[in-house]
Amino acid sequence: MNMIVCIKQVLDPEAPLSSFKIDPATNTMVPVTSVPFVISPFDEQAVEAALKIKDAKGGKITVISLGVNLLRDVVKKPLSLGADELILLEDPAFIGGDSWSTAYALAAAIKKVGQFDLIFCGRQAADSDSGQVGACIAEILGIPQVSVAKKVEAIDGKVKVDKVTTDGYEVVEVPTPALITVSNELGEVRFATFKGTMASKKKEPIIWKPADIGAEPAKIGAAGRRIKTRKLFQPVRDSKCEIIGGETDEDKAANLAKKLVEVKLI
């Protein structure tokens, strides 16, 4: 089984909201230095989905990441967990794009990799939250796509996917090659062993520039943008705290449920 996983380096989404600022003049985020970079959490789950298949059936995992200033101690993490190869589309020309131009570049890189049965993406990136890149890649490559997976199993030439729905999950099957976007319901991701971490030292990332993947300059990064950001702003949220009382814990829970129904939260 040849697998490809697309991962994105993002600012830690767990960082307090107050660390992020927006420049209203340019509609962009003000660069911050105090927040560390991480792999977008859904993408970590995508890596885990691939690793589970590799555990069960063997195979090769190639990880691709697009961006600039990709920190090696961040993007090499999948290698420490058992991925085989890391390809970085690292060039200023790749950035400033939208979902489509990002997918265009990733798809071009995937074509260059050539052999693949499964492509994994996170269901959405933790920073932009668009959730489009996976679908766009599948479209460009002309392969089926299953979104929000919580379980992925490979069964001779097909893949069985448990796909999250609002009140449960659906089980679907797709032929390979296919693209799967993975959700947090997949469950816990593994931690790197010491040996795995140290072994990743020997796996140097491969760096591809636009010309290496035959990308048309007008279609990648900022030049390839089809979406225009009209306004970027931080919503102001008011919060109130209310303590829900009750004689016993059961009462308290029941009162809480009542309250939540009342304010139409459930």
Binding site: K76, K77, F191, A192, F194, T197, K201
Partner: peptide, 15 residues
């Protein structure tokens, strides 16, 4: 170095 940073970050998340 990069690997030690990965070890450290992984340990932080683990703990």
């Amino acid at each position: 170095n990069d690997e030690q940073k990965m070890l450290k970050q992984g340990a932080r998340e683990f703990f």
